[in-house]
Amino acid sequence: MKNNKFVFAVLFPIFVLVIVFLVLPLIYGLGISFFEYNPLRQTNPFVGLSNYAKLFRDDVFIKATTNTLFFVFVTVTINIIFTLTLAQFITTIHSNKIRSFFRTVYFLPCVAPMVVAATVWGGNIYSTRYGILNTILSSMGMPRVNFIGDANLVMYCLIIFTVWVDFGYNTVLFSAGLDSIPTQFDEAGKIDGAGPFQRFIYITFPLLRRTFVFVTIMTIISHFQMFVQFMVLAQRGGPNNASTVLTFYVYKLAFINKDMGYASAVAFVLFIIIMVVTLIQRRLNRIDWGY
């Protein structure tokens, strides 16, 4: 169809918003990263690439980057294996009602604000004094453990929390993916005498590959952007930056240390990482996964 007036009338305001709030911030952010930028000051000197040079000398940045990569890799791996298993289990149930019951319950943490979950886990689960884990430990006569306060443990605590808070999402996606696979494939496998595990590996999984790739990549991208648990549950990236990740570090640099130029440089690195993952996804998507 054609109607330039109508197209223009709609697209003009839309693109004003897109440019100002989606495109401009990226360019603006890149620009700021070349300045020593504190908007409170009248003058902000141009420093060229020195914010980027600083990255390599900054222990906290290096720590934040490795923390981020470790967190994303481990969490996503556990998440995918766990949710795929759960989804497979759920499909074996015949009753529609029970199936949707489990999906609904599992989805609850995805619906509730994450800051609520983070607060509850920090207070009621991990806390040394009134956390349920320590109550159990001490009732078994074992010494109490400071889960959040121990630099060696805090990241694992965050990973467990994140898997818990986010697994419902992928379970629903995978289980929808499994439901859309025609049952005759599985039946054929049964007739050929394949066990349930074999059928999953050789029949179901290849058919699910498209959903699998989509879900994995989206999960990776969303995990790079997580912020709340590092701020609320892990108490501001501590102890000793053991749980500082890139998103939190950007926030801290910009809004606590007042160094918006350097914060933008760190943000740009995070952008590059996410960009690379996205491009890999688009490449993989182009492959024909047809049955």
Partner: peptide, 11 residues
Amino acid sequence: TNLDALTGGGG
């Protein structure tokens, strides 16, 4: 004493 007040989790 211990490090709870610095490292968190101690209430």
